[in-house]
C-alpha cells in the first residue's frame, strides 16, 4: 500500500467513466480490507461509501485550504491560487486519496499554473471516452439537446459552473474543447500519467483496471480485481442506485446516474453532420487515442 499521505487525481472530461473508477477503487479497497472508514461488509453503498476524496473544485475544501471565503475571489484571483491550495502533508483526510477533477490542467485565468496542487501528488489517471458517446451521456445527464452537447465539446470556453453571477458548492471549472482538455492532462510534464480509455474499461476490464490498481498502489491480485469489477458492473451499479433511492451525485431532472454505460451510442444517435462536426474539430486527438 501507498504511504498514508500519497494522493492521485482521477482527471476526466465529465461523463467519461470517472465515477465508475471511483466506485471500483472503493470496492477494491473494501474487498481487500483496506478501507479506512466504516463500510458495510456485505455490499457497497453508493451514497455512504464513495468517499474516495474531495473533488478538486470543492469550495468547502478550497476555503479550508485558502483560509478565506472563495466567493470573495474572482476567477482571475482564485485560479492561480488553486494549485497552491493543499501544499501540506495534511492535504486530504486520511483514506481519501483519489480525487476527481474535471478541470483542464490549467485555466485561462491561472497564469499558466496548474489549477491542482502537485505537492505530494503521485500522479494522475486520465480517463478518456469517445467524444460522440460523451455527447450522448452529457445529453441525458444535463437534459441538453445533442446539438448543444456537440457544441459544448467543441467550445474552447466550456466550463462547469461557468456563471459568475452566483455561488455554489463547487468553483468554476474550465475545461475548454474536449481535445484541449485531454491534452492538457496527457501532455503536461509535472505529474506521472496513466491514460485509460472507457472503451478498454468495458472490453479489457481486468487488464485496464489491473493497470489502474497498480498505478494507484492498490492491491493488484487478479481475483480481487475481477471481483471488484464484477461488483461494479453497470448492471450492478444500476441495481445499487435503485437500492439507495438515487445516487447523490445525480443532478436535478436526471432520471438515473448509471444509465447504459455502453459505447457506440454516439454513432447511433448523433446525426452524420454532428459526427462530422466532432471529427473535424477533434480529429488529431481522437486519432491519437484510437477513436
Amino acid at each position: 500500500m501507498a504511504d498514508s499521505n500519497a494522493y492521485w487525481y482521477l482527471a476526466s472530461y465529465p461523463k467519461s467513466g470517472n465515477t465508475w473508477c471511483r466506485v471500483f477503487i472503493t470496492e477494491l479497497m473494501r474487498l481487500s480490507g483496506s478501507s479506512s472508514g466504516e463500510t458495510d461488509p456485505q455490499e457497497l453503498n453508493l451514497n455512504w461509501d464513495l468517499n474516495t476524496g474531495a473533488i478538486a473544485s470543492s469550495r468547502l475544501w478550497l476555503d479550508d485550504q485558502l483560509g478565506v471565503n472563495s466567493c470573495d475571489l474572482g476567477f482571475a484571483e482564485l485560479d492561480p491560487l488553486r494549485g497552491a491550495a493543499g501544499g501540506s502533508a495534511w492535504l486530504f483526510a486520511e483514506g481519501e486519496r483519489y480525487h476527481k477533477v474535471h478541470d483542464a490542467f490549467r485555466s485561462p485565468d491561472s497564469r499558466g499554473r496548474p489549477v491542482v496542487s502537485l505537492e505530494g501528488c503521485h500522479g494522475a489517471v486520465v480517463i478518456l471516452r469517445h467524444p460522440e458517446d460523451v455527447a450522448v451521456s452529457l445529453s441525458h445527464f444535463y437534459g441538453w439537446s445533442l446539438q448543444r452537447c456537440v457544441a459544448f465539446l467543441l467550445d474552447p470556453e466550456a466550463a462547469l459552473v461557468p456563471d459568475d453571477r452566483h455561488g455554489g458548492q463547487q468553483v468554476r471549472q474550465h475545461m475548454g474543447r474536449w481535445d484541449q482538455h485531454v491534452m492538457s492532462w496527457v501532455d503536461q510534464q509535472l505529474l506521472p500519467v496513466l491514460v485509460i480509455r472507457y472503451e478498454d474499461m468495458l472490453t479489457k476490464g481486468p487488464e485496464t483496471f489491473g493497470a489502474l490498481a497498480a498505478f494507484l498502489q492498490l492491491p493488484t491480485d487478479g481475483d480481487l480485481v475481477e471481483q471488484a469489477l464484477a461488483n461494479t458492473s453497470i448492471g450492478r451499479l444500476k441495481a445499487l442506485e435503485e437500492k439507495v433511492g438515487g445516487f447523490a451525485e445525480k443532478p436535478q431532472g436526471c432520471e438515473r446516474f448509471f444509465r447504459s454505460g455502453r459505447s457506440g451510442e454516439g454513432a447511433e444517435q448523433l446525426s452524420l453532420e454532428q459526427r462530422e462536426q466532432l471529427a473535424a474539430g477533434l480529429a488529431a486527438t481522437m486519432e491519437r487515442f484510437g477513436y
Binding site: A84, G87, S88
Partner: peptide, 22 residues
C-alpha cells in the same frame, strides 16, 4: 504548524494570510 497551508500560516497566537494580488 503543520496545519498551515501555502496561503495560511498558523502558530500559537499567530494567524497569517497571504493572498497573491491582494
Amino acid at each position: 504548524s503543520h496545519h498551515s497551508t501555502q496561503t495560511l500560516q498558523l502558530g500559537a497566537g499567530e494567524w497569517r494570510l497571504g493572498l497573491e494580488g491582494i
